[in-house]
Design a binder for these strands. Structure first.
Lengths: 122, 122, 122, 122
DNA sequence: GTGGTCTAGACCACT
DNA sequence: GTGGTCTAGACCACG
């Protein structure tokens, strides 16, 4: 559980938190059932308001990444392997499609894209 | 000059306009010297405020895509081929890096990425 | 005595327990005088805190479904048939009223409601 | 647009607002494209915090009942008739199922249910 | 003017 | 102790 926020980043803090946790759940770094640290703790450690953390948590729950049990805490949701894989694919497909749209708008060929990925993947 | 705005898209209207024109300039669809329609016209056709259009134009001028000649309007800027290529690369590199970061966070291999691009490039 | 808790359900655990027992008493599945298992046992079997179970029991006693005999445990309360029927009616009326309010708010006719119940009652 | 909140009701204010607007959209009382009053206005009129209103609006947008365009306001979403009907059905089915579950738990027959609805539908 | 985000508190219900 | 809701401000980006 290594969370961090970058206040210079223009993306909202709650979204930054969302992305980090969602990715960790989807990549398997956080396994189902794992308890998350209390909102107040996260809030203090990151130096952001409780509400900001809650806002991220709420989004994560809505999207099925965690379940919250009032009085006892928040836990990584149970996602079976197939489901997890599906969501990884969805997420990546969207990102890939966005890149391809960009490339096409700029008149860049598929080969150039592959080459660029190869060069920058490290 | 085919401009459009998508009101459901959460990206600000002025940014949508910016992206379209910048892409068209970089891909060569808009060649240097081409006059842009008056702000007032664009504003009416798209049903958006003149302020919004002006703000997109300003950003484009700031980034060297447009030049304003007082009294006669806005024109696509002169970009020499090397410069144009550099900027295409910058833009695409940023997009590629974002995708790679995503892929890494999700624990996805480079090969999977290439395969996905191949499949979705149509 | 088949008790269970659903951790995904947002209704508080103590309320889930309350509802199950209240329903069983009102439907006659639990007859007057039947002893309830000790709080400690229920707590262990369901994996919930004793405090939670106690709080459900207290509410049930307050509402006349249970009686506590100090030293010997909790028992299903004596409810005469007329009383039992009244309470079933109260409970159901409330639920029916809620449904009707919903239907009206959505502009749905009474006939549609009857049809839907017929279809879904199995 | 007649909104009201009942502070005595234990359901959260933002949920009360959500339900009212969602119902009005689904029943057709609010037609697609209609602008909603600014959050600040609603907030003042109802005597609740802006954040509470926003929270309801956010949920409504998430669920496709409205779209917000920063800088110009919030509008009832475009829902075609088929989609609208589907969502009305979903909503009502859920409510009906809940009632049926209740009835079954209490050992009440289908006929009794129909009779009760008939009597209380006014 | 609009909505979007954030803070620093508070009070409540649940476990 | 936990999370859930709410308040009364503030500042920013957008149109």
């Amino acid at each position: 559980m290594r969370l961090s926020v970058n206040p210079n980043d223009k993306t909202p803090i709650y979204r930054q938190l969302y992305e980090q946790i969602a990715s960790d759940v989807l990549s398997g770094k956080l396994s189902p059932g794992t308890p998350l640290p209390p909102i107040r703790t996260v809030s203090k450690e990151l130096g952001v308001s409780m509400i900001t953390v809650r806002s991220a948590w709420e989004m994560l729950e809505r999207d099925g990444f965690l379940v919250t049990r009032t009085g006892s805490g928040c836990f990584v949701a149970q996602l079976n392997e197939a489901h997890r894989q599906t969501r990884v694919d969805e997420r990546l497909s969207a990102a890939v499609d966005a890149l391809i749209a960009d490339a096409k708008a700029l008149g860049v060929e598929e080969e150039t894209l592959h080459a660029m990925i190869e060069k920058r993947y490290r």
